[in-house]
Design a protein around this nucleic acid. Sequence first.
DNA 1: ACCTGAACACCGTTCAAGT
DNA 2: ACCTGAACACCGTTCAAGT
Lengths: 198, 198
Amino acid sequence: MPADPTTVTRRRDAQRNRQRLLDVADQAFRKHGVQASLDEVARRAGVGIGTLYRHFPTREALIEALVAADLERVAALADGLAGDTLAGIDGWLAELADHSVTYRGLAEALVTATATSSALGDACTRLHDAGRELVRRAQRHGVVRDDADPSDAVDLASSIAWLTERDADTERRQRLLRAAVDGLRTTGTDELHARDQS
Amino acid sequence: MPADPTTVTRRRDAQRNRQRLLDVADQAFRKHGVQASLDEVARRAGVGIGTLYRHFPTREALIEALVAADLERVAALADGLAGDTLAGIDGWLAELADHSVTYRGLAEALVTATATSSALGDACTRLHDAGRELVRRAQRHGVVRDDADPSDAVDLASSIAWLTERDADTERRQRLLRAAVDGLRTTGTDELHARDQS
DNA sequence: ACCTGAACACCGTTCAAGT
DNA sequence: ACCTGAACACCGTTCAAGT
């Protein structure tokens, strides 16, 4: 799945080590967040720490390998939405926020990677682009107000995911998302915008 | 300014060391965020690392000493607001967010400390209480909708502060806050709430 | 081509010795 | 009463040696 075919791991043992590291890292990240000890990940995977670094030169590379497919899946979900209902936007942002909460610290890693030239950065850009396009379609449908910035939706979802990543249940996350999306929708009465001039 | 008078530092040199550590830590936190090296803080303050730990047993205690007065100031601002306009809520949350951005990592430190029994935790509780009361007054004025959770306002401000703490200008922060607050206000037309049942 | 783990670097924290 | 800094612990990262 690497972008560059020349970097593909060929040897069977290397492939197995790589997969083991991913499996163990996933468990460790779920348990301790993305700041889990890489030393312990290597140890539990039964490989030397050098092998971990050979496969994943940075912690970010390891995170990317674990979440890239899921990020692409969420981005593709946005592509498939017409943007004709606010509930659609809301549902998609909830999906995004739920994913960003897979590991503690993931939301931060995604925000940090955004706009960098790494593989994870590219995945984030893909996601943000899909989110912006969705908002633009919603604006054309008159569902989201025209003066909203297309980036706001994903930004708010990222923020809320970060705040609520420690929460056991998803109640608060959903309520906050609902409020945030509500703030982007087209208002029914124009006088409510009067305070824009204040 | 410590709560317990028995813990007051008496000796002149100790008082001066304490103040120096605070001054240097403030500079270091502004430059490198709250994760700045404490070793370097002690070194620049001209004291041993043990002295730093004697005055501030944890990093959180150091942060608390630096921001407690400002947190109290922001909380008191909320106490003084009637909650009769959405612009008042918006302005207060902007003040809160701007403060939370004093140091990189401060927003996270505040969220982490909230609901713990530390001095910083108490300061956060005081802030949250003030924020919740402000929202409740706004609800009584019909400015904020009744089904909003009083905690949502401060939560959203904290989230947005975290997301935008790396931003040079405050434009994005203000726009996101505006959208978030908009989602809490009483809507003009009831049919806009129809999707609540979806 | 890949793996190993010792070695290095860095940082936070404690505590025995000192003034 | 307070300060000092060596000592300890822990972790991330590199790289020479090995298969």
